[in-house]
Amino acid sequence: MLTMGSVVMGAADVRRAAVFWMRALGYVPRDGDVEDGWTVLVPAEGPGTALSLGLSETPVQEHPRLHLDLYATDQAAEVERLVALGAERVDWDLYEDDSDFVVLADTEGNRFCVIDKT
């Protein structure tokens, strides 16, 4: 049997990425500290999917095959909060008129979506 252990993302600056995602998701370092080359973040409160950040110099994909979908009950407020934490809005060319998502990039350029859960 298999279970999902962690979602892994690359980062040129693992510490900077870790600070962003800890603030964004309320996660903490699994091993008590953030390492420069590799760190695993876990929910501070209870179970959930871990987020691992590994040192990478690979360029960010404009249309990544894999990304995070974050569900929000107040999408506009969450987008603004994430932008204040260092995320950037992405000029996404694949939006449809009735899209329920906003595409952002973290401090490392990794794309993720904030989905309107309402």
Rank of each mutant, 00 (worst) to 15 (best):
A11L: 02
V79A: 04
W92F: 15
S6M: 08
T58H: 12
V19Q: 09
E62V: 03
G5N: 11
A17T: 14
M4W: 14
R15P: 02
L82F: 13
R15C: 05
C113F: 07
Q75I: 03
A84N: 11
G46M: 10
V90F: 06
D69H: 06
V60D: 08
H63M: 05
S52V: 11
L85C: 10
E78A: 03
A72L: 03
L53S: 04
R81Y: 12
A87C: 09
W92E: 10
L53W: 04
A50C: 10
M9P: 02
L94P: 00
G37A: 10
L68V: 15
V8N: 11
W92T: 04
H67R: 02
D97R: 05
I115T: 13
D36M: 07
V60Q: 12
D97C: 01
E62N: 09
L25P: 04
D33Y: 14
E108S: 05
R65M: 06
H63C: 01
L51K: 00
P64H: 06
I115E: 11
R16G: 01
S6A: 13
M22Q: 12
V8T: 15
G54W: 07
R89M: 06
A105V: 13
D36C: 08
C113N: 10
M22R: 04
V60I: 15
N110K: 07
V19D: 14
T49I: 13
L94V: 08
H67I: 04
W38S: 04
C113M: 10
V114P: 00
T118N: 09
V90L: 07
A87M: 05
L70N: 00
L85Y: 14
L41T: 08
H63L: 09
D91N: 09
V42M: 11
E88H: 14
W21Y: 13
V8K: 00
L104Q: 03
Y27I: 01
R81E: 10
D106F: 09
P59Q: 08
G32A: 12
L66S: 03
V28L: 04
T3Y: 15
R30C: 00
M1R: 07
G5D: 12
L66H: 02
L70V: 15
L55C: 07
L51S: 00
T118W: 09
L94N: 00
R30S: 03
F20I: 06
Y27V: 01
D74K: 07
Y71R: 00
C113K: 09
W38P: 01
T73E: 12
V19N: 03
V7D: 01
G26W: 04
W38K: 01
R23V: 01
V103W: 02
R15W: 13
Y71N: 00
V40R: 15
T118L: 02
